[in-house]
């Protein structure tokens, strides 16, 4: 798994797609595939065509799963067991004032903790700033 992290609108997906033009990708949007196993089900379609799975807007997927009362931490482990070669793209959401609302605080904290775990497991971690990738692992 590769992890891509960076601020909003920094060109993270474009960066990933530009890395290896020989590959074909299946881009999954974490904001659209919000229900239960929707993400994994959509990713299954990549197997037949040998596409590389990209999970875009991972932070929104975490947010949606938390809102739905899911357990994103466990769900993502299961997902990675099945798709160990995927690319996960996540916004940096912790660089701001601590929000007043409890859910907003929990969402930021949980996303951060999950990203740390993903970074530990990842073969490569890239931070994207202004469309430029800086490999940090």
């Amino acid at each position: 798994m590769k992890l891509i992290i960076g601020g909003y609108a920094q060109g993270k997906l474009t960066y990933v797609l530009g890395q290896d033009r020989q590959k074909t990708y299946r881009v999954l949007d974490g904001d659209c595939l919000r229900d239960g196993d929707a993400l994994a089900e959509e990713a299954e379609k990549s197997v037949k065509n040998r596409e590389t799975v990209i999970v875009n807007h991972f932070h929104l997927w975490v947010r949606n799963r938390l809102e739905a009362g899911g357990d994103p931490e466990r769900e993502v482990e299961k997902f990675l067991d099945r798709f160990p070669d995927c690319v996960i793209i996540c916004d940096e959401v912790g660089n701001g004032i601590v929000p007043v609302e409890a859910f907003e605080r929990a969402y930021r904290e949980q996303t951060g903790r999950m990203v740390i775990r993903l970074a530990k497991e990842a073969e490569k971690v890239v931070r994207v700033v202004c469309g430029i990738g800086q490999r940090i692992k």
Binding site: G94, G96, G112
Partner: peptide, 9 residues
Amino acid sequence: LMIGGSGSG
């Protein structure tokens, strides 16, 4: 000086 966001580790 060590700087990071919330949940950055």
